[in-house]
Design a protein around this nucleic acid. Sequence first.
DNA 1: CCAGATACCGCACAAAAATGCAGGAATATT
DNA 2: AATATTCCTGCATTTTTGTGCGGTATCTGG
Lengths: 248, 248
Amino acid sequence: MLKEERQNVILHEVNLHNKVLTTHLVERLNVSEDTIRRDLNELADAGRIIKVHGGALSRSFHNSFNITDVYSLPEKKRIAQKAIRLIQDGMFVFTTGGTTILEMARALPQHLRATFFTGSLPAAFEYLQHPHIEVILIGDRLSKSSRITVGGGAIAQIRQVKADLCFLGTNAIDIHAGLTDNDLDVVQVKKAMVESSSRVVSLAISEKINTAQRLKVCNATDIDILITELDPLDELLAPYRDAGMEVH
Amino acid sequence: MLKEERQNVILHEVNLHNKVLTTHLVERLNVSEDTIRRDLNELADAGRIIKVHGGALSRSFHNSFNITDVYSLPEKKRIAQKAIRLIQDGMFVFTTGGTTILEMARALPQHLRATFFTGSLPAAFEYLQHPHIEVILIGDRLSKSSRITVGGGAIAQIRQVKADLCFLGTNAIDIHAGLTDNDLDVVQVKKAMVESSSRVVSLAISEKINTAQRLKVCNATDIDILITELDPLDELLAPYRDAGMEVH
DNA sequence: CCAGATACCGCACAAAAATGCAGGAATATT
DNA sequence: AATATTCCTGCATTTTTGTGCGGTATCTGG
């Protein structure tokens, strides 16, 4: 294994779990402790990780870059792990923005060959890290608050595609109110994505379950798969299972 | 087997597996290690692969965007300062990607109210930091190496706009060869921007002056303003002044 | 067709890089 | 404070790289 390859694995591990132990890397990569240490030093010198006693931390986690994003991070990482299992080679995938989607992007396996369509600037950056993923950026006016593109041009571009999957970062979901949100521009983009996809996946941490916002994206019945950090058999999710959703 | 044939095999292997070992190529192609090494060096010099100890990696796999080491940073900051003076409230502005453009984006005054059109992911991020700047993202396929959007969709979106200014991060400029570059997709996007703008501005550090690449973006006469880190009266820039360019 | 120029290839040897090991120093843990 | 873990430094070994050289193939302009 090449040195650069090894360092890429380390980076991937760090970004996935936000931390990594030297000992863990030793057995994961089958090299000596010194080699790992040298790699960590190089990566730290290059500013790609934060080295600490016993291992290393992800830069974005430690640094003030997006402290706000760490809200419910472990839950979102669990959701991300479940979500990536749905994606297969060759698929066309829509994704919205949001921190849960970002975690999913970071968790994608290196070998995956798929095409991702997104209007989210941060998500696009993450997809770019993956060598075999083709990224199609949906263009139009950039919303400053959500950092995704919105507007008629974006919707027109979405309509030109028929994707296999659509991953929606979810603000509020309720069996009666459906999937709802609070930004009109964002809602319209999500609507377009739902309509242009064969299967719709809602990624929602459990505190969003059974809540509603003002603006409707789609009915609960339009959602094919619901992914939360909970056990699929959890009582809270029963109504969604009964409504015919796949619950993961 | 011809040299080019062999190098094509190497490129194919690299793009397929993201990496390739020198030893593997030796037995795959039945030539000496030295020949492989020379091939890898040539391909790396041409920018088609990234050479590392023990083999080579594909360009897209190598995540080498260190925010830390921007080449010729002081020069680029000077250029940025000159460039932002051209932008006035209410203007529509096209920008390409590249580190010089990025410095310009960082240098923009907070009060500026303008509309920026770009296909560059990093540049878009910077524009987003400015409260009164409207950002229109040009969508399409994201090029992994340059992190800008390229393709017919991007060009179609550019054509829909008539901008006041177009800032081109410049790879090579020469009074006879004009403005040139080495990536076909990027060239086409730049061409479209030049055609859709009233005034075209080339941002170039002085070492790019009087150099040329393979692919032509536009003639020297199509460029209205040339900005370098040098004094506008510098001898090196005389031919450009004589050709009628504004030199800043 | 031929002679000279040019490019290409493999070998040998020296330089550089990568890796692992041993020890003592530094740091965490109890 | 005592103990265990982790870290750093120097060193030896292996692998990889760069370079000069000679032989061979290919191109080019009479």
